[in-house]
Design a protein around this nucleic acid. Structure first.
Length: 493
RNA sequence: GUUCCCAUCGUCUAGGGGCCUAGGACACCUCCCUUUCACGGAGGAUACAGGGGUUCGAAUCCCCUUGGGAACGCCA
């Protein structure tokens, strides 16, 4: 459904700081980001914190940190460190834009397009029950819609609490708009009732702020999740009431959980921060979520952000929801892991190893060699922990799975020959070639070959008969440690 | 209940009337590589929800049915 892209594209991601950033939000941010970059436009981060009860500073910081970690840099919005406004259309936090909203509410009130409503929760509840009893759904029907502003002000002056509702009665028509991803979408005006625009506590409501801000911040395209599709009607009504031109809207299919339901924070949606802890790379997350609802024109699957920007096109967005499949996600992370240069990969792995208090050599050459050895065995950074454990002197133990190998007839001889030859080795570490030579000598001395040769040695190195190739592993372990391990294994054989 | 959205392998998807006895990827199975495990390579099995149209021709266009989802808040 591509149409003319306006020359100065401005898009925004507008999270509410009421929790963590989950993959659904991250994907919305990503698509907006890609669209902005692709079209040389601006990407704005606006904070929708009009829910005073649930919005917190910690959540805001968390969301901002996750965005930074993912590499989704914004051009305008809050500063990632100070959270102060950056950009010419601030404030970017809705809680700081109250005076702007109030002024618009006044305009609506004065022009009779909105009214004060004094209905109590109980009265609204009663209306609901009655319509439910009648077997149908009905919107709030406020008797105050016909009051004059003067009448309402008298009641207000008497200290009564009121919300401001947007008047929809006179808007009897279908609202049609051309959704950038779905094509023409039509909503009957009576799909909504007189919706609240300003809460009794003085805080305006999402659908109102959103429309105002998108207009004032000169947003050209609003790409958001499909759950917002019905909200578009209200926003369209506000644009109309204000005589403003609405931006282009585009509603993207949802990311679903295994039950095919919308991912929800309540049910433990996949949080970006959580994925970070689990050892996923930002590039893999971005790559994977991008492909949940969008595809590369050549069906390429492993993509860098740069490649995504190049290829991004909203006409390739998918219309139906996609399940977040952790298995494929893990595979994709492994692909990104393997594509990461050794030095960089070590830097990524290191914090995970540090958490386990492992004592590993500080030598950069050793570090790079070690990641290159384990690279193909890792799917997530967390996997490095188990992989590196055998390299850590303190954690060598002969595992139960080695029992059978230890019982084999040639094992004892192999272990003892191995120990002696390693002991006789002149330097702290041995090279791959030196290891191969020693292994050969063990073979000659004992006559053991095949698994009778390899498995006992592997047990003497990592405590189990299966695992990483010995010739790449042994050069990573200090001679003294190898000897000590061989002794330990020998004691059990 | 009402309104709206959606519908290709188990999952992510390609597909824009003939190139489709439907292609790729993950997972699964077999084999190869490898004196282990992984990596890698080669094969295999598995899908157009159903029914009506339109058309010489339909996975593709239209309608209905069914199924799934979302929304209907002083949440966003």
């Amino acid at each position: 459904m591509s149409s003319q892209i306006s020359p100065h594209v401005r898009v925004r991601f507008a999270p509410s700081p009421t929790g963590y950033l989950h993959v659904g939000g991250a994907r919305t941010a990503l698509y907006n980001y890609l669209f902005a970059k692709k079209n040389n436009g601006k990407f704005i981060l606006r904070i929708e914190d009009t829910d005073e009860a649930r919005s917190t500073q910690e959540s805001l910081q968390g969301v901002v940190d996750d965005m930074v970690w993912l590499g989704l840099k914004w051009d305008e919005g809050v500063d990632p460190i100070t959270l102060q406004d950056v950009g010419p259309f601030g404030p970017y936090r809705q809680s700081e834009r109250l005076s702007i909203y109030k002024e618009i509410v006044e305009q609506l009130l004065n022009s009779g397009k909105a009214y004060y409503c004094f209905l109590t929760d109980q009265e609204i509840e009663k209306q609901r029950e009655e319509s439910a009893a009648a077997g149908h759904f009905a919107h709030v029907n406020s008797p105050y819609q016909d009051w004059t502003l003067e009448q309402a002000k008298v009641k207000l002056a008497a200290g009564e609490k009121a919300v401001v509702r947007f008047k929809t009665r006179e808007l009897k028509k279908d609202y049609i708009f051309n959704d950038q991803v779905r094509g023409e979408v039509k909503f009957p005006s009576d799909m909504v009732g007189d919706f609240v625009v300003l809460r009794s506590g003085g805080m305006p409501v999402y659908n109102f702020c959103c429309a105002i801000d998108d207009h004032l911040m000169k947003i050209t395209h609003v790409f958001r999740a499909e759950e917002h599709l019905p909200n578009t009607l209200r926003q369209l009504m506000i644009y109309e009431a204000m005589g403003w031109q609405a931006p282009e809207f585009g509603h993207m299919a949802l990311i679903l959980d295994e039950d095919r339901q919308k991912l929800s924070k309540r049910k433990g949606a996949v949080a970006c921060g959580q994925l970070k802890q689990e050892g996923y790379l930002p590039s893999a997350i971005l790559n994977f979520i991008a492909l949940l609802g969008w595809s590369h024109p050549e069906e390429k699957e492993i993509l860098s952000v740069e490649e995504m920007i190049q290829a991004f096109d909203i006409s390739r967005l998918n219309l139906s929801g996609a399940i977040f499949d952790r298995v494929k996600f893990k595979w994709m992370n492994a692909q990104h892991l393997r594509a990461t240069p050794n030095k960089e990969l070590w830097n990524l792995v290191q914090p995970f190893l540090a958490r386990e208090n492992m004592e590993l050599p500080q030598d950069p050459a050793w570090q790079e060699m070690s990641v290159s050895v384990f690279k193909t065995s890792m799917e997530t950074l967390v996997d490095a922990i188990e992989l590196y454990k055998p390299l850590n002197d303190k954690s060598y133990v002969v595992l139960p799975e080695a029992d059978e190998t230890l019982k084999w007839e040639p094992t004892k001889a192999v272990l003892s020959a191995w120990r002696d030859l390693v002991k006789a080795h002149p330097s702290d570490y041995m090279t791959e070639a030196e290891f191969l030579k020693i292994q050969d000598e063990v073979k000659n001395i004992t006559g053991a070959k095949g698994k009778n040769l390899f498995m006992p040695i592997r047990v003497a190195v990592i405590g189990k008969p299966h695992g990483t190739e010995l010739k790449t592993l042994v050069p990573l372990i200090k001679k003294s440690s190898l000897v000590q391990r061989a002794e330990m294994a020998l004691a059990l054989a």
